[in-house]
């Protein structure tokens, strides 16, 4: 099995001197083609920073990130963005407040010089379950779930092979979360996408991902398969704590 995304000893450091924060320390992982890989952790574990480092949005202090065996360089080439796209956590913050859905979707097409923008925009909206009626709306005319669908459409319109999902449903209501997770599942099956999903919710990761990494304080705690997680066969104490906490409050 060849790895599509390879990360070796990644370290990310913010700030200098006394204010130095080592957000990610020595993280390595491999994601195969067509696989869905999860990263679980609590706030401050550095899980989102790993995704941002892949995109070049976080300063890489050391280590390597390879896509199809090719080491990524800074700044990223334009072709990189047609290969890798990201969906952000908060759908209220990830859409430009003054741009219509149409503008949001046509911008990437204009940047990369596609000429069949009309057809692509309509197809992208259809693919994420939004009809034509949504095309000229502003973000404030959309609900949270609809916004996240637009964000997914934006990520998919360049037809990338790798999708980075940063807590894509944690800002959504439970019933909307189910719809968005189903949509992501269906899109992956349909297009053979590779997912790298970050979440604090073990259940979401167990549902979406075949393999997962547990992170704490910027370091890898352990790597688990979905089966191991389902059988609660975690080795590390921290993962066991997370598993217990995910069951809710059982009282004394």
């Amino acid at each position: 099995m060849s790895a599509l995304v390879e990360i070796r000893d990644l370290a990310v450091t913010f700030g200098h001197g006394a204010n130095e924060v080592r957000a990610v320390r020595g993280v390595s992982l491999d994601v195969a083609v067509g696989e869905s890989f999860g990263i679980v952790g609590e706030s401050g574990s550095g899980k989102s920073t790993v995704l941002r480092a892949i995109c070049g949005l976080a300063p890489v202090a050391s280590g390597e990130i390879r896509i199809e065996g090719e080491t990524l360089k800074k700044p990223r080439k334009r072709a990189f963005y047609r290969e890798v796209q990201m969906v952000f956590q908060d759908p209220y913050a990830s859409l430009h407040p003054r741009h219509t859905v149409d503008k949001v979707l046509s911008e990437p097409l204009a940047i990369h010089g596609f000429d069949d923008a009309e057809a692509r925009i309509e197809r992208a909206l259809n693919d994420v379950g939004l009809g034509k009626g949504f095309r000229f709306r502003f973000p404030h005319q959309l609900s949270g779930g609809q916004r996240q669908r637009v964000a997914i459409a934006r990520a998919l319109i360049l037809e990338p092979r790798i999708l980075l999902l940063d807590e894509p449903t944690s800002a959504l209501d439970a019933s909307i979360q189910a719809e968005v997770l189903n949509l992501l599942d269906a899109l992956r099956a349909e297009r053979g996408l590779t997912y790298l999903l970050v979440s604090h919710d073990l259940a979401v990761v167990a549902h979406m991902c075949e393999r997962l990494l547990v992170m704490q304080h910027g370091e890898v705690v352990e790597e688990l398969s979905r089966e191991a997680l389902q059988n609660r066969a975690a080795q590390a104490e921290y993962t066991k704590d997370l598993l217990i906490a995910s069951e809710g409050f059982k009282g004394i």
Partner: peptide, 13 residues
Amino acid sequence: DTDYIAAIRLQGA
């Protein structure tokens, strides 16, 4: 530093 600027940067703008 908002997400929507990060998003458009990720589209290669």
